[in-house]
Design a protein around this nucleic acid. Structure first.
Lengths: 240, 240
DNA sequence: ACACATAGTGTCTTTAAGACACTATTAAAA
DNA sequence: TTTTAATAGTGTCTTAAAGACACTATGTGT
């Protein structure tokens, strides 16, 4: 007698099976003061209690219908805002990374404007923006240093073939600001002309008037990303 | 009194926490007879019993120390060989995709030579190579159609900026064969000259003598991928 | 008015792909 | 045996887009 799927599900009890620990984590970057910043949270529970870590945590089966919802919820909890850019980076799973046992994390990369969440972050002592290079030297929890490096590397690649890093800037920004952001990411100067040709070709941004001159020299035009534009991928990369 | 991490772990019992179902799956492609093929396995257990699916399954905490080991084990079980190319594609997780409840799958894309595993596959009735376009029309288990499409799309991108699809060919292949494989993946003819310039620039292959003329016309040189070469990424894509 | 700093453009060079005609080498047909 | 057809592989011109860099434009401070 064949068992039907309904009968199978009737008898099935997930508690009989031991699944690995499942978390979602995010490497959240922003760009400010000419530096790449990464959001860190202090672990207030064991294991690795007291260490700084990438924001994240367990999926809540009640609250979250999907991984995307889970990570959006974590982001909202830590930054107070919905990230304008979020993308799945990779998953890491093994029996070494967490002392509790076999554990898997699905990691996302997110970009936000510092301004959009600065006040929220400033009011929570266990959340802070750290300069990426400084974070590299820290003793982060679990394998978060390696994960952060992987996210940074992916962001560098994005800078070579897209304008995605613009999401790490304030909603309004100037082209010199965006160019500098890309230059920091790829760790190399970009020809102003090349950069501006690409901005024009991508057609992702719109002028929003002149930036008041906070620095010396000619003021630059302010831009913002157009509403509802998809990302643009250049068929040729900048020289790495 | 502060609890130490050791004390925490002493008391910690994973069985008290319900984690989502965790599986690893693979979209395994090969290229043969001018067609892209994908490996499917027939599900012999509930749920979705009897449907064809991408090979995969649960992580075995005893056998597998990491996700990579888990997927390599699955590949070995289904094909009898170690895949020369394997890469993590993405993870999918939600409470809809599996009737048993909240479930996460970490998906890999692998490329193998048909010849290397043909005899093994032919001897197992619940494993078979399916032409990609035919697989698209099938009622695959879970969300495997969508996953397969995502893997196919990624493979197309790879064809535009790398020679990775060469791993889907026999160990020895000709340049016209590789060119045709790329053309199928990007669904567009490639200029012979452009293709061959790229082959030369990438410097990934070495001649292994003349291919005996199985067809009419001038015989082509046979090549194989050099040992221990890293992948090469072109700074400019082929036109999509 | 002038120097200066920074924004932004013009234009020549360089790189690598697209187009396509050309030569090369084989098997089959005449 | 020559010719033809088919496929492999090359030469070379054109085109697209990045690099280089000098130039103009527009602000501030003296």
């Amino acid at each position: 007698m064949q068992e039907t799927e309904a009968e199978f599900l009737q008898k099935y009890d997930r508690r009989e099976y031991l699944a690995p620990l499942m978390t979602v984590d995010a490497a959240i970057f922003t760009f400010h003061g000419g530096k790449l910043l990464v959001l860190l949270t202090k672990r207030c529970e064991h294991p690795e209690k007291g260490k700084w870590a990438l924001p994240g945590g367990f999926v809540d089966e009640e609250k979250d219908a999907s991984l995307e919802e889970a990570i959006q919820r974590k982001l909202q909890e830590k930054t107070g805002v919905k990230a304008p850019y979020i993308e799945q980076l990779m998953s890491v799973g093994n029996n070494q990374r967490d002392t509790r046992g076999w554990s898997v994390t699905v990691v996302y990369t997110a970009l936000v404007a510092l301004q959009s969440c600065q006040s929220f972050v400033d009011n929570v002592s266990e959340v802070r923006w750290e300069i990426y290079e400084e974070a590299l030297k820290m003793d982060l929890a679990f394998d978060h240093i390696e994960i952060m490096k992987a996210a940074r590397e992916r962001l560098k690649q994005k800078a070579l073939y897209s304008m995605v890093p613009a999401y790490a800037l304030p909603e309004e920004f100037t082209l010199p600001e965006l160019q500098h952001c890309l230059e920091v990411l790829i760790d190399k100067p970009i020809q102003k002309k090349s950069f501006r040709r690409r901005v024009e070709q991508a057609d992702l941004m719109e002028e929003v008037g002149l930036r008041s001159a906070d620095k010396k020299g000619r003021p630059s035009m302010a831009y913002r990303l157009k509403e509802g534009v998809k990302d643009f991928t250049f068929i040729r990369n900048l020289d790495a």
